[in-house]
Amino acid sequence: MSEILLQTINLKKYFPVKRGVFFQKTIANLKAVDGISLDIQRGETLGLVGESGCGKSTLGRTIMRLYEPTSGTILFDNKDITTLPEHTFRSYRKNIQMIFQDPYASLNPRMTVESIIAEPLKTHRVGDHTERRKKVFELMDIVGLNPSYIRRYPHEFSGGQRQRIGIARALALNPKLIIADEPISSLDVSIQAQIINLLIELQIYYDLSYIFITHALSVVQHISTRVAVMYLGKIVELAPTHELFKQPLHPYTEALISAIPVPDPQREKERKTKRIILKGDIPSPLHPPQGCSFHTRCPKKFDRCEVEEPRLQQIGNTKVACHLY
């Protein structure tokens, strides 16, 4: 029954670092996304986790073609959309929409809520003015905003309400896939739960698929079907959610899970004794380490890790990139 909605094959996005005034020379490449292969099934939520600078947001934006991929392939409904010119790609854009992290920055402060939510409809020439207004009313109602506020401006809303506006805008074109880039991390704790619940309800209602990009593992555990863990532009582990949290295979995943504090003083005491605290910092993606990119911080590192880059291999339901297996 599982049907693949979107697939990336060996997707890469390098940002050239340039020098020079007129004739710029590329002196290095920042490998933000470095050979990512994954797929999203219809109706599932794929959690994409990792620390800052691991390339998770860049991956989302590359799939959206906000950044042109350096190489690799993106398949949507089995059609190659990697190199479609913008005017043909436009019709695919309807199917993939995005929710952004900062609800203060993602809404144009000079536009009314109505023009913000109706902008995708207008851009894709859906309906006339009255039909669009009706659709805006409907969308606002669905995301839990009072439709009588359509003439208001973003600054008149709170953070959580703004994020609802962003969600309404993403839903306007009835997309099949929504890429949510840290949609709750700038919201207050009591508001986060509201937005998570809303996203889950909408998923059931519209049969949506999500790519849920976040650094918060506890949220991923709650919302996703499968989880991909990224480190320095690569996937180090990809597994069904309950398996990943029950038995993480990659040492990085293990450290990541153990580092999260749990809101329970007793259990936190136990966890603290077993906590794996990684040495050092995340290396710069401009100069990633040789071999396995995690070896500089890995507690289980051995000789081979410094020389040979591990490849993603299947172990049971899990894919992991580590020489231990």
């Binding site: 709170s158 959580g160 309400q161 207050d188 704790v189 009591s190 508001i191 986060q192 739960a193 509201q194 998570i196 619940n197 889950i200 593992l217 506890s218 949220v219 555990q221 709650h222 919302i223 959610t241 309950h242 949290f245 899970i257 999260i260 749990v262 809101p263 329970d264 259990r267």
Partner: peptide, 20 residues
């Protein structure tokens, strides 16, 4: 209202309605 690692996955988080 916070999703936590140590509890089993529930379908709905308890959310506090409204705004501060």
């Amino acid at each position: 209202s916070v999703p936590r690692l140590d509890t089993t996955k529930g379908n709905r988080l308890l959310s506090i309605p409204g705004l501060p």
